[in-house]
């Protein structure tokens, strides 16, 4: 029975031990062996979002150490830590004390490891070797190809696959029943079709849909519609209509008031421009995308995002002026 006090369903209905995980059978079997032997190598979990990588890691340490696993477990997220030095220091601090009890090591989970540069991964590799006596690493990533060879060869690889439709739908049904929420079978299937087996996203959509009453197909689409920020499209349209100053104001609002990063915004602009909602000739789209890519690269290099994106908006205004006049 899930803990009552938890209110975010994605967390509340996360399996707490390996036994509760109903899918990813092969993976669970192998992990259970580690628990039995009280020993394990470094692990590498690779797979799309919402397929159970973090859940499997948490369940594994739970089963290894029991309910008090927190003191033997360090959770880091590569996207949140500023640079390899921070990660190294935290690991060093954590690995300083030896694990008590009957498991001779502690566990570090490093999530989104594929967000680290190759250089940072090299440094991570050395850190892993340095503390290998007392510490085991679990690295989680979406893209195995972004993990350097030396790390791949030093870890046991676990591939996670998107969950099956019947598993996702059954889980969502269970949640609805438990939360006393009415839901249409068709709506749950729609959620699966959209998320393609991403459990976390599925549960989040379910909880959002439940906020509008009965979970119907319509409610699901409404939730998804509302989850798309309109402001970026509005900004693009303002620029294309030649209203550069208004578009720039919108950009500043997005950066300052909504806390979006320059990279978030430029990626979203890329999606909008190449999508079907914005009416620009295809050959012009190609020219624009080339410049959008340049802007994203400059931002990644550390150039000021507000200036880069203002340049991009001016470019949009030029193209709007040339190709969309009178439309």
């Amino acid at each position: 029975m899930p803990a009552e006090e938890e209110v975010l369903w994605a967390e509340k209905y996360r399996p707490k031990s390996l036994d509760e995980i109903v899918n990813q059978k092969d993976i669970v079997e192998r992990l259970k062996k580690f628990v039995k032997e009280k020993n394990m190598p470094h692990l590498l979990f690779a797979g799309p979002p919402g397929t159970g990588k973090t859940t499997a890691a948490l369940a594994l340490v739970h089963d290894l150490y029991g309910d008090n696993y927190r003191q033997y477990f360090l959770e880091l997220n590569a996207s949140d830590e500023r640079g390899i030095d921070v990660i190294r220091n935290k690991v060093k601090e954590f690995a300083r004390t030896v694990a008590g009890g009957n498991v001779p090591f502690k566990v570090v989970l490093l999530d989104e490891a594929d967000n680290m540069t190759a250089d940072a991964q090299q440094a991570l590799r050395r850190t892993m070797e340095l503390y290998t006596e007392t510490t085991r690493f679990i690295l989680a990533c979406n893209y195995l190809s972004k993990i350097i060879e030396p790390i791949q060869s030093r870890t046991a690889l676990f591939r996670f696959y998107p969950l099956k439709k019947e598993d996702v739908v059954a889980r969502l049904q269970y949640i609805c029943k438990n939360e006393s929420v009415e839901c249409d079978q068709k709506a749950l299937e729609t959620i699966y079709d959209i998320t393609q087996g991403d459990m976390r996203k599925s549960i989040n959509i379910l909880q959002a849909s439940s906020a509008y009453g009965k979970v119907t197909v319509e409610a699901v689409y409404k939730v998804l519609g509302l989850a798309q920020p309109k402001e970026i499209r509005e900004m693009i349209n303002l620029a294309l209509q030649g209203n550069f100053l208004k578009a720039r104001d919108k950009l500043r609002e997005l950066l300052v008031n909504y806390g979006l990063s320059g990279e978030d915004i430029v990626k979203q602009i890329h999606r909008e421009i190449t999508g079907n909602e914005i009416n620009i000739p295809d050959d012009v789209k190609v020219l624009l995308v080339d410049y959008i890519g340049e802007v994203e690269f400059r931002i990644m290099e550390g150039a000021d995002d507000e200036i880069q994106l203002s340049a991009l908006l001016a470019k949009l205004a030029i193209y709007g002026n040339k190709y969309l006049k009178g439309k």
Partner: peptide, 12 residues
């Protein structure tokens, strides 16, 4: 609480 990075939390 939900074991995601700040970036992912904001966007997803």
């Amino acid at each position: 609480i939900i074991h995601t990075s700040k970036d992912k939390t904001l966007n997803d």
